[in-house]
Each structure stands twice: as structure tokens, then as C-alpha cells.
Design a protein around this nucleic acid. Sequence first.
DNA 1: TAATCATGCTAATGCGTTTAAGCACTTTGG
DNA 2: CCAAAGTGCTTAAACGCATTAGCATGATTA
Lengths: 339, 339
Amino acid sequence: MKKKILISDIARDLGVSVTTVSFILNGKAKEKRISDGLTKRVLDYVKKVGYKPNELAKSLRTGKTKIIGLVIEDISNPFFANIARLIEAKAYSKGYRILYCSTDNQPEKTVELIELFRDRHVDGYIITPSEGVRDTIDSLLNSHLPLVLFDRYIPGLNANYVISDNVKGAYDATAHLAQRGYKRIALVTLYSSQTQMRDRMNGYMRAIDTYQLQPYVKKVNMEDDEQAAIQGMRAFLKDQQPDAIFFATNYLAITGLKALKQRDLLMPAVVSYDDHTLFKLFTPTITAVSQPIEAIADQLINTLLNQLDGHGKETKQVVLPSELIVRESSLGQTSTKEN
Amino acid sequence: MKKKILISDIARDLGVSVTTVSFILNGKAKEKRISDGLTKRVLDYVKKVGYKPNELAKSLRTGKTKIIGLVIEDISNPFFANIARLIEAKAYSKGYRILYCSTDNQPEKTVELIELFRDRHVDGYIITPSEGVRDTIDSLLNSHLPLVLFDRYIPGLNANYVISDNVKGAYDATAHLAQRGYKRIALVTLYSSQTQMRDRMNGYMRAIDTYQLQPYVKKVNMEDDEQAAIQGMRAFLKDQQPDAIFFATNYLAITGLKALKQRDLLMPAVVSYDDHTLFKLFTPTITAVSQPIEAIADQLINTLLNQLDGHGKETKQVVLPSELIVRESSLGQTSTKEN
DNA sequence: TAATCATGCTAATGCGTTTAAGCACTTTGG
DNA sequence: CCAAAGTGCTTAAACGCATTAGCATGATTA
């Protein structure tokens, strides 16, 4: 168990000052007019003994950690997981590392995680805000900390965000069902006033208006155990007998499918906001509103990096289009996006 | 944008020394015989001004970060995601925080992530080791850093680990199919010599021996694009015409289902190692070998916390039983574990 | 009465870096 | 020819906290 080697060891061994070594290590050799010979000598020695600076000390001194905190609703949801992956890759190439945590959409947990990241002095934040975290986000904003929200935003808060066009996505999904001739098109959504949920509801209602249909809305509480949610949905299905259902999230769709699994209910047409790898495997396959994951990740990381570089003082609020992926194996039709 | 408040500010405002404040804040008031009156006065003032110590400085000084690094194959895989959740919850209650990262099973990335965590001085490691990281793990071991491997281990390395009984799980799955009368039972696995894969193969082979069947094994490379894997599987299916398939991981099963989706192939019976929320929704539903997630998380965190407390010098290597969850809706049978 | 002890606190040092300021000399420009 | 600028480094002060060793009191003991 060899002793950890310090920058002062390097300096001593080479007969120079710690400062000089530090300059060279931080690429300031030229700027600080250190001779090429010494620069090379130091670099070689550092490589030889395998010295690595103590990042904690470095961060304490500089105030920078080269870490981005990713506070996400649920990392096990494929939509979020995929975005996390893309962000991680892009950040990596810029020398930043990502640390992630799941909030389960619980305000207290979200606040705690943001505080944790703040305690650890992460350089920037990417957050899916749950309800009731306005003050915490506001405090980050007031401290001028680089920050981008996504998937939803906080009305009235002048923060950067990247979201998809939830209204249009939901409208398209509902309109698609209406055009197929379905008459009793239900929306299954959450008890939630978050913006993305609100907008999906609005999109659904707009389509209902356009096609002069009756709305059937079921709100579910997903924080309780899943069984209760399933029971609630089953009651709704028996009651209202929808011939088509638009689920406002992919996990609502999954829970809904479980509710439909028992064969006493007839299988309505199903559309989900957010896709899922397995949706294409179902019989019948499930149409989905697919968010432009790659573009979202791009915008997120670029907006954040801009702020980290000190540019981009003006807030950036981006709305990206979603795409309806139509899957109807029973009718022999396939989307071109299929693989 | 208010200035960050320091421990020295507290001390000055209260007319006491920094040392005293530090003692009180770290719960050493009694031990250091600080009077109750002063203790209360300091605590109250700290709460009033909302002082929070700089964790970086603290860590630099103490060498402790109260952070556990979780290096996992793929956080978007439900099996890993669920374990991560449980670990996070248990660690949290002990004052530890979790930081996670996905390796995608790539050795270079795994090594880099472990180094990253090491640079950040995490207090302990929980790792699903990919191949080729023996040296890195060994180096952690040599530095006496608290460490537990899981899902697989590294043969010959005397490290703590927690795994499930892969041999028995695979045997049970294969035997189940044999008992149902299937004759051409295939194994679909990875090109991988990791222990869990090796053991699942061994379990399959033992069952093949027991029931005097012919083995049909397809190895797949999942690091390439999925299309190639699907094509490979389809070729195998057409060639060998298995009437039952045992997939060695849940994502192999998902890819396999995509390969089977086209209706030119007859649907064989399917069993997967590791369960998935959606498996029970398929028609026909999919039987799975389910690992005891809760027990695994318990053992992992307990083993690690033991080491962090300074106890537990002897290495702990735990093998937990897996359970076969039989799902056969077509036959009207259901497992009692079903919900 | 002096020696001892418990009490309640503080001064000083260290953790491993970065960085502003400087130093002793040499070169350059007008 | 002399001030200004350049050269190649180093000194020392942070960064924000924890901790060891110790110091001044007053109380207790012998």
C-alpha cells in the first residue's frame, strides 16, 4: 500500500517549486514562461511516477469540480435513461462528468438531492423539476448557477429549459385515434399539475374539440402502490367502455396494459406518450408519441456548456417537436421509423 | 446573491473560537466538555443563519466523503435499476449518498469510472465488474478500500461479492422446459466469459445432461447494433428450429422477442434469466428466473457498511438463491408471486 | 498551602492544491 | 546609456474546515 504521491513530492524530487509543477500540469507552461526543457522534465517525471492531483483539494481551491448534476425523475424509465446516456457521452467529451440521482417525483427528495449536489459544488445542474421545488430552483437561479430544466418547466420562473411540444404531441395522438374512427377516446393521466401533464391534457382536449367527441378522463395516483392504480383503471374501463386510450406517459401505459390484461375487458386501441422498446413487441403493437431524444440531449448539454463557459447570459427556452410513431401490425401497416 | 457564510463567521459573531463551533457541529460537544448553554447558543445561531459546512473542505480534511460509488453495467436495465434504488435507500438512512454510473460492460469505461470515483475519494465501491478490470479492482483491494462486487465476481480475486445462484437458476429454468416436454431447448447467451454467464451456461448444460437432450447454443454480440443481433438470432432459429428458448439475460430475451416478432417463425416457449415488468404482459407470458433483489441489495449494503465501520476484515462471498417464476396464462396456471 | 484535577475553551497546524505577486537578472528601445 | 520590458522561476497567501495539544481558571484533595 504505497503512500499517495503529492505535487510537493514531485517538486522536491525535481528540485523546483510546487508552483512551477502546478503551472506545467495545468497547461500554463507557455503562458507562465516555463522553459520547454523543464516542462518536459516535469511531465515525464509525473507520468513515470503516476502522479494524479487530489481532485478535492483542486476543487476546494478553484471552486470548480467539472461535474454536472443530473436530477431526474426516474432513471429506470427508458426515456430518462436514454437521455441520461446521451448527456453523459456529450459531457464526457467536454471534460465534464455526470452524477445522477432519481427523485421519484417527490419534492422533498428532489430538494435534498439538489442540496446534496450543491454541497458537493457541482458546476451545473440539469433537472426535471417536480412540483414544489420552485424555491430551491429559484435559489439556484439567484446564485447564478448554470442550470437547465427539462421535460417540464416552472411557470413564471425565468430558467432555461428544453421540452417537447406536449400540446401538439398529445393532439396528434388523439387526432390519430379520431381519424381511425374511434369514438370513445379516453385520456389516462396523473394527478399532477406539472406543465408537461397539463399540456398533454390540453392537446387531448383540443383534438376532442376538433373532432366533436366526448372526453373521458381518468386521473391516477402513481405514488401509491401499483395495485391501487390498476384497480382504479379497471373500474374506469368498465364504467366508461372506451374504445381507445391515450396514456399520458409510458409507465401509465404499462400499468394500463396490466389492467387490460385480464380478458374480461375488450382491448381498446392504445397510444402512449413516450415510446418504449417493448411497445413494438405487443400484440397489437402500441402507437407512441416519441420525443426527439437526441435533440433534447443536444440542446440540454449545449445550453449548459454555454453557461459554464460564461457565455449565454440570455435564457434559452426550447420546445422541440415530437413525432407520432404509428404501429398497426393488425392492419399490416408499419411506420418507416420501425426497426 | 448573498455571500457564503463560513464557520469563522459563526465563531466571530458569537465571540467564540472556530474550534469550539467545529466541535459542537460535529457532535463532540459532550466529549470535549463544551457547556450546554454555549452548545445551544451555537446550534441556534447556526440554524438561524442557515450555515452549512463546505463539504469539499470537510472531505479534504477528514478524507471521508460519505459517498458510495455504484458502478453498474446498465442503469436502464430494470434489474440493475431496482437494485440501485434499494441500495440508495438503505445507504441514505445511514448517512451515505450514492453516485451511480453505467459501464455498458466496456472495460475501458469501467476503469475510467472507478478512477473517477477514486479521484473524488468516495468512501466505498459497489461494482459489477466487466471483463478486463482485474487490475483496477486489485489496486482498490491493495489500497484496502471498502469494496463489494455483485452480479458476477472475478475468479481468483479475494474480494467481497454478492451473486445469485446462477447455476441452479439456469438449471431450474431449463429443467422446467424439459419437464413440460420440450425437446429442442436452446440457450441464447452472450460472447462473454464473465462468471454469471459461464454459470448460466453450466446450469443449462447440467439440465440438458439430466434430461438427455441435445444442446442448442447461440452466442450473440450485444455490443454491435441490435439489428445484427436480431439477424443472427433469426438465422439460428430458422436453422435449429428450437421449440423452447432460455435467454441468459432479460435484454437478450427482449432482443430475441423482436427476432421472433415476424410471424414467419413459430413461437417457441420462452424463459428469461432476470425478470422484467413487461414480461407478464406478453402473450404468451414469459417465465423468468427472478433474482432476490431485496436480499441482494441488503447483503451488498451491509457488507459495505461493515467495512466502512472498520469491522469485517474477513471477506464475505454470498450466493443467494434465484426463484423460477412460472407464467403460463395459456394453460390457465399462475404463479403465486404474480400481481 | 501546595499539589492535583476537572472544566471550558483556544491557538496553531495541516489537508493538497492554485495563483497573485515578486525577485534577480537579461534584453530591448529610444 | 538608462528605463522599460522580458525571462524563468519562487514565495507566500489563500481555499474552508478538523483536530491535536495546550492554557487559564476555579474546585478539590492531601
